[in-house]
Design a protein around this nucleic acid. Structure first.
Length: 226
DNA sequence: GCGACAG
DNA sequence: ATCTTGTCGC
């Protein structure tokens, strides 16, 4: 699939990366979905022990049947080390390499990380949305930023995550007796739509929404052979 | 200044 | 993220 070359991703200083995030922030789109998506993709990147070589996986499912319709991946080295707040700069290059191989015209993507739950609202999912120009949702397994209260231990219950008075995401109890997951809008989508779509992919049987879950397991599987 | 810190 | 066996619990 083609993508918009919003700005360079390699060889940037932290000041430059922060500057890019601040410049993109006012351009984040909050558009509600106009129609039910047909295809939805899950994105995940797995790394080897060195944490340098990784594999980016994109699994695409049919929204209604939840059947897998396409799977693509790309392997390569990661230039940047992980730094909280700058995950997009570490993972986007390899993701875009896989994105170029994708031929299914997907309608929405789930990313493994936060979206607007970020000090500058520019988490991985949000930043990725600028490049692929499609709705994106962030699904994270751990907190990173913002204040929130613990949701009830009932599947489907959630609490909003705030920065000051601003609502930036939600903590969702996707499964009874497990830690909640963090759901936030990426780009070209609202938080309410993000929650609605996410709930569609969490039956209560699994903690992680199906697209991300499948991408994660496939990335781990590929890690040991390619 | 100190501690926290997605993947 | 990754390294790892058994083990507690539904």
């Amino acid at each position: 699939m083609e993508y918009r070359k919003v700005h360079p991703l390699e060889d940037l200083s932290f000041q430059e990366m922060t500057g890019i995030q601040n410049r993109l922030r006012p351009q984040i789109s909050d558009t509600p979905l106009v129609k039910e998506p047909r295809f939805v993709s899950g994105v995940d990147i797995g790394y080897d022990t060195s944490r340098k070589r990784g594999v980016a996986v994109i699994v695409t499912l049919d929204f209604k049947s939840m059947e897998v319709v396409d799977t693509v991946y790309a392997v390569g080295d990661t230039a940047l080390a992980y730094r909280p707040g700058y995950l997009a700069f570490r993972e986007l290059p390899l993701f875009l390499k896989a994105w170029e191989k994708l031929e299914t015209d997907t309608d929405l993507l789930f990313f493994d990380g936060h979206g607007r739950i970020h000090p500058r609202r520019m988490g991985l999912a949000t930043h990725a949305g600028f490049f692929v120009d499609r709705p994106t949702i962030g699904i994270a397994k751990n907190p990173f930023f913002g204040r929130y209260e613990e949701p009830e231990n009932v599947p489907g219950s959630y609490r909003y995550v705030y920065d000051k008075e601003e609502k930036i995401g939600a903590v969702l109890r996707s499964k009874t007796g497990t830690k909640p997951i963090f759901v936030s809008a990426g780009n070209h989508i609202t938080l309410e739509d993000s929650l609605r779509i996410t709930l569609h992919f969490v039956s209560g049987e699994y903690k992680i929404p199906m697209p991300t879950r499948l991408a994660d397991s496939y990335a781990k599987q590929l890690r040991g052979e390619s």
